[in-house]
């Protein structure tokens, strides 16, 4: 429904050049994107543990931190942005392993790859759902954990916004790793090894956003860079994941 409406509006706008209008309509329809997106969302909603476990991991490990490094409020508030960001990164990474696994094992990934359409949009749909069920809840939960770790109140909003933008990039980049390792039997540690270095820019600018706000500076530039990383990742990462899926299916 939604995608058809987009198609109509796009083809109306592009009236002057008819050929271009047709091409735009073909892109706007994006075969199967909406269907797959809805299916994935329903599946995620029915497998509650997939949504809850990363959040529980996030909260549990962060609760361990004061036990490990001591409960002094000043130290905790200094470390809070970094701790929360690193834990969000780990939670995303660990939940990513199963991104393509189920579809690979029951053969539907192969069916998707056999369709006469690029794999770009199915991958994008899956990543979008992954972000909606892990990244966004993590971001929503982060101010609470910030409070527990004595983070300054001026850091809550930047923390939330940077996590919303950043976890989307993390999901996209991690999808490449998940696609590369989907054919392996126990990819957990390998996935972390190959994806962690690629997460570095997101981590730096994510914590940079919060730190800038805490130090009383404007955090707009850092958010802009996070947005730019997200734009590049959204354009390129599904392409790389699609290639990786085809390689994994050959295995």
């Amino acid at each position: 429904m939604g995608s058809e409406a987009v198609e109509v509006s796009l083809s109306k706008k592009a009236q002057p050049g008819k050929a271009r209008g047709v091409a735009l309509a073909a892109y706007a329809r994006v075969p199967g994107f909406y269907t797959l997106f809805r299916t994935e969302l329903v599946l995620a909603a029915r497998r509650r543990s997939d949504i809850v476990n990363p959040l529980l991991f996030f909260v549990t490990v962060l609760a361990m931190m004061p036990l490990g490094i001591g409960p002094e409020p000043e130290m905790l508030s200094r470390m809070a942005p970094g701790l929360i960001w690193v834990m969000a990164l780990l939670a995303t990474l660990l939940s990513q392993e199963s991104l393509f696994r189920g579809d690979y094992e029951d053969g539907s990934l192969e069916q998707l790859a056999l369709q006469p359409q690029p794999l770009y949009f199915p991958v994008l749909a899956k990543v979008l759902v992954h972000w909606l069920v892990t990244g966004v809840p993590l971001a929503l939960l982060s101010p609470l954990l910030g409070m527990m770790l004595n983070l300054g109140a001026e850091g809550y909003w930047p923390l939330f916004v940077s996590l919303v933008l950043g976890t989307a990039s993390l999901s996209l980049i991690g999808a490449v790793g998940a696609a590369l390792t989907v054919a392996l039997r126990r990819p957990g540690l390998l996935l972390a090894l190959i994806i962690m270095p690629l997460y570095v820019p997101v981590l730096i600018f994510g914590t940079g956003t919060v730190q800038a706000a805490l130090d009383g500076y404007s955090f707009g530039p850092q958010l802009a860079v996070l947005g730019a990383i997200l734009a590049v990742a959204a354009a390129l990462a599904p392409l790389a994941s699609a290639g990786a899926i085809r390689i994994s299916l050959e295995n």
Binding site: L180, L198, I204, V225
Partner: peptide
């Protein structure tokens, strides 16, 4: 493929660090 993805990332990593 992983090496190629890393190639795209190296300038970004370098600049961000």
């Amino acid at each position: 493929l992983l090496a190629l993805v890393g190639t795209v990332n190296i300038p970004i990593i370098y600049k961000s660090v």
